[in-house]
Design a protein around this nucleic acid. Structure first.
Lengths: 202, 202
DNA sequence: GTTACAAGTTTCTCCTGTAAACATGGAGGA
DNA sequence: TCCTCCATGTTTACAGGAGAAACTTGTAAC
């Protein structure tokens, strides 16, 4: 893991290396023990080096959150791309992709939606989050146009489906969805109930 | 805030005093800067004193979470008690009470549903959480009996409504429910969409 | 009364974030 | 070519937190 000699004094692209290390840590450390010093250590650099690239811890966190939104958007877009029999099926696929992303990157997902990553502090982060949200809006709009979803205010559908998916994701990654509470397959069950309210009667 | 002299060497009920101080801190500090030393300081004891009553920080956090569940249950029970025209209205009242509780105690609410407060570690915490969840189950069951809610598996309704309410609460306290995304009154709107899927057609 | 124990305090070690001062090496002008 | 600047490293320093260990103090039981 550590090459003692061959590293030149100047790293080359420490900024990117720090981000990569941090993302790798977030992917492994479910439990959110994230320290700048540990990131520096694993990157093989002194604990003060990161401050040349990030004003403070929060700035790095916000950058990680931004990348998280980009990746989530990619994940959801991929999940939606195959031919689907209905917009409803596409919605389910996107929702499950989002929840799957959260399960595979729990710490990153939590970070993305925590107030640690305050979006008012960082226009780029805000933009990334809005862009990801745009996928949902696009899907809802399409569903309304083709008669799949009820013609109520799209913002209401957006609020409901976002809350539902985010709620399921948060409960899942925090291990709250115990079988004794919500049965053995809560995610599809919950999505079905919600979609019954969103969809036009067949 | 601090009486320098009159405090006897032994506090009397330091355990309760620490819990009260911590709860007060959680109510004020939205942003979750919670340190044992600060709790000790504000309680007027040395920073090591809390360790006589809580093995470590986590044990105190779990106790706070437990109390949070008790209070949430009280809040929801109160909100549901007045005469309501329908089970649906009662559901909305309970849901809004839960979200209101989260908004008024954001740090506590976050703690309650974080994996910091690992329920597998503490039977009493688990029991308190289950008891609070029981309110939802009772309401759903009653609604199914009187024909308000659809006769699908109650665990599916539970999963959907819990995820919805928790999702709304989390998004709200993390200031993610921006008007540009979900309109001006996302909570009632989202609950309505969900309930359209849960309720029998009128 | 003496003594034992629960519940305080002090002191210590190791960790973190962050600031300041110092070092290095590559790029651009004399 | 050489000198100098400066971005990007390192070292050192400091404040504050978790928690362990050793010490102190009331009080309650014998």
């Amino acid at each position: 893991m550590s090459e003692p000699k061959d590293r030149p004094y100047h790293h080359g692209d420490l900024r990117r290396a720090l981000i990569d290390t941090a993302l790798a840590m977030l992917a492994v450390d479910q439990n959110w023990a994230f320290t700048l010093r540990e990131v520096a250590r694993r990157t093989g650099v002194s604990h003060a080096a990161p401050y040349k690239h990030f004003r403070d811890r929060e700035v790095l966190l916000r950058e990680l959150a931004r990348i998280g939104f980009v990746r989530l958007e990619e994940t959801m877009t991929e999940a939606m791309s195959p031919a689907m029999p209905s917009t409803r099926a596409q919605f389910v696929a996107a929702a499950q992709a989002c929840i799957g992303f959260a399960c595979q990157n729990p710490a990153l997902y939590r970070l993305m939606f925590s107030s640690d990553a305050d979006k008012t502090m960082d226009p780029q982060l805000h933009e990334a989050a809005m862009s990801t949200f745009g996928i949902l809006l696009g899907l809802l709009d399409k569903g309304q146009r083709n008669g799949s979803f009820r013609p109520v205010a799209v913002s209401a559908l957006a609020a409901a489906s976002w809350a539902q998916v985010h709620g399921l994701a948060m409960l899942e990654i925090n291990k709250q969805l115990l079988e004794e509470k919500v049965g053995s397959s809560p995610v599809p069950a919950a999505l079905d109930v919600l979609l019954d309210g969103m969809c036009c009667t067949d």
